[in-house]
Amino acid sequence: MAPHGDESDGGGEAAIVIEAEKRPISTIVIVIAMQTEALPLVNKFQLTEDLDSVFPKGVPWVRYHGVYKELNINIIWPGKDFTFGVDSVGTVSASLVTYAAIQTLQPDLIINAGTAGGFKAKGACIGDVFLASSAAFHDRRIPIPVFDLYGVGLRQAFSTPNLLKELSLKAGKLSTGDSLDMSQQDEASIIANDATIKDMEGAAVAYVADLLKVPTIFVKAVTDIVDGDKPTAEEFLQNLASVTAALDKAVTEVVDFINGKCISEL
């Protein structure tokens, strides 16, 4: 992913990209699927809810915003589903709020933060925090040449070697689907994706950010071991509070590292 603009658009656009990479990061958007994950960061950064919403009338999306150090921070939470009253998790809500946030707020960087399942076979443990190197789908199966690759939708995260080294985060590939559990077909696709972690939003955020050329990183904390012995839903709920604390700590450290730096220094 590259900052706003594309070198193929001509010399003028390329110059804008280069200039953006040298300019200190000013505005970031943090996309988080669950209120439980978002609120500790809202408090940490002393953000306020936008009551006069920048988003279309009638949507449940919530924006918390404020200034932390030298950064304009926006935490975007898709809100509660009006019909069922639960967090609007999944790829549809994630893609919609990401698109709306980019169009409205023009961020220099997106952080998709959240909890995820991890695979012990790939070295993941409960509480580990990963900086995903790439994101792909595991439940969009289109067995037709080229459409199959489109379905997987592999996209690279923005490269942040200095951030990864400084914070000693784990690195791994992320696989995304709209189900908390894992069918045999999903498992085969996840293995094909060489994924260490799985979530329900990342690849959707990556798709939109790639379309609109906004650098994006993925910070994911492991709540459950997908290839472990415990039922996924039970383990997820059991560990959600403690792992969310680890996630919030990691995101705060990421934001502190970003502060005062330009994109090319990450």
Rank of each mutant, 00 (worst) to 15 (best):
V254S: 00
K230G: 02
D224G: 03
V255F: 09
L41I: 03
P145L: 14
A171P: 06
T252F: 08
A204P: 01
D139L: 07
G202K: 08
E21S: 14
W61V: 08
F257A: 02
A101N: 05
N43Y: 09
G66L: 02
N239M: 12
V205Y: 14
D52L: 10
K80W: 02
I75D: 07
V243Y: 07
D87W: 05
C125R: 15
R63W: 04
K120C: 07
S53R: 07
L39T: 10
C262W: 07
I102T: 07
D248T: 15
P215D: 13
F55T: 00
L39R: 04
G117Q: 06
N43R: 15
V54S: 09
F137R: 04
S133H: 07
V152H: 11
K230W: 13
D81L: 02
V129P: 01
K57D: 04
L105H: 08
L180N: 01
F257M: 06
A101C: 10
I225A: 01
L266A: 06
G202F: 04
L169W: 07
E13H: 08
I30V: 10
G11I: 14
K173Q: 15
V89F: 01
I110A: 11
A101F: 12
D256L: 01
T252W: 03
N193F: 06
D6E: 03
